[in-house]
Design a protein around this nucleic acid. Structure first.
Lengths: 215, 215
DNA sequence: TAGATTGTTAATCGATTAACAATC
DNA sequence: TAGATTGTTAATCGATTAACAATC
């Protein structure tokens, strides 16, 4: 295995490659060249080949790539060939939202528990899950082999909840709280700032308007 | 106004600058130098100054930046000084999730309608909103001055819903559907692929494990 | 074998960082 | 005025694209 550190830009394109490959597979396409793939996905053929060759030579000269084979390789690289057990921290609006969303998942990622600090919510149901007391999180992570903690609590509590999860032994944190958090180096962190995304959208809307006006 | 096209990398940092400035304001901090800001936010002082100077000279030599002033400038740049009216397209799990999430918003972004294709859901309530028939979307966008369409429908219907929204006259699309969509150049598009984000998290978790093992 | 297309090296482009003159 | 810190130009770094030899 090549072991120069892979850049985030590359990693963030992998799930997208996979999505397109799954679509192709569904359509019964068996092989694809980097040139054809380029036209479909919108990256240059060069970039596609560069990206894939970070991980290995998955293609065949003169032929192209096997759609199924490449999809499987990418899934192995991403680690989608195993199950991830997740807990949702916070059962407020944000927690509910993410819980509902995770229900649409098939496959590798499964919510195994929902936790809350506010005593009045504990014991209530969120979908099929009973909301549990935050006090019990450390034990739960251990006994239930939780891999990922999803942070859906208030800005004020996000760091403290993250600390607790890391202490308990999760291997990844998916942060939806409206603040930045820090985790130790042995824990992976992925951040989704939905409001930042919406603000960027607002910028682009106004940018387009401005350009239109000056034409 | 300078008018070389601003890169996305810069734009995506602006909401983050704003978040930190708001925190500082809350704490009563009145001025900050790029160096101090750098230590707080984790970008280099150089980058902060470069970023801001894309839009204007907001600082003062020998002094730094006014926290409140800079926050206001950034909000103006992002276009947060006005209201955005949004519709949610799709009242399934994803639509419900995003609806719940938008309830936590204060300020500039407001959901004014929820639409659905599936007849059995039409007329039901989602929070305070009655779910409306997709058939009526074009008229609604016009009469209610909708700015943004949030796409929460199935992969299969995403492009068709986007087309209809663009035809109806929205200025921005926020896409949560698990597929890529295309919009005309006068419409802004911002994409949130939550499952892609989760896949990247899985990659990083496995990457850390591998490195730990080989140490 | 000849044609096609990869894997990989080299060239280009863009974004980040460093340096410093301008100026409050 | 002297010290501090910006605004901006120049240098560096990294990522993308182009080119082409290797090879199926």
């Amino acid at each position: 295995m090549k072991n120069t550190k892979i850049s985030n830009a590359v990693i963030n394109r992998l799930p997208r490659y996979r999505r397109y490959l799954k679509e192709l597979e569904k359509k019964g396409v068996e092989k694809i060249s980097s040139k054809e793939f380029s036209e479909l996905i919108g990256y240059t053929a060069s970039q596609i080949r560069q990206d894939l060759n970070n991980f290995g030579g998955f293609g065949q000269q003169g032929y192209g790539y096997s759609v199924k084979g490449l999809r499987e390789e990418i899934e192995a690289i991403l680690g989608l060939d195993r199950e991830y057990r997740m807990v949702i921290m916070g059962a407020g609006n944000l927690g509910k939202a993410i819980y509902n969303y995770t229900k649409t998942f098939k496959g590798a990622f499964r919510v195994v528990g929902v936790f809350e600090i506010r005593k009045d919510l504990i014991g209530k149901k969120l979908g099929t899950h009973e909301i549990m007391d935050y006090e019990g999180i450390v034990e739960f992570v251990e006994t239930e082999h939780v891999d990922i903690g999803i942070i859906c609590v208030d800005r004020e509590n996000a760091q403290e909840v993250a600390d607790k999860l890391c202490f308990a032994g999760v291997k990844g944190i998916w942060n939806f709280a409206r603040t930045d958090i820090e985790v130790p180096p042995h824990v992976a962190l992925e951040v989704v700032h939905l409001s930042d995304s919406l603000h960027a959208l607002a910028y682009h809307m106004n940018d387009i308007k401005k350009k239109g006006g000056s034409r």
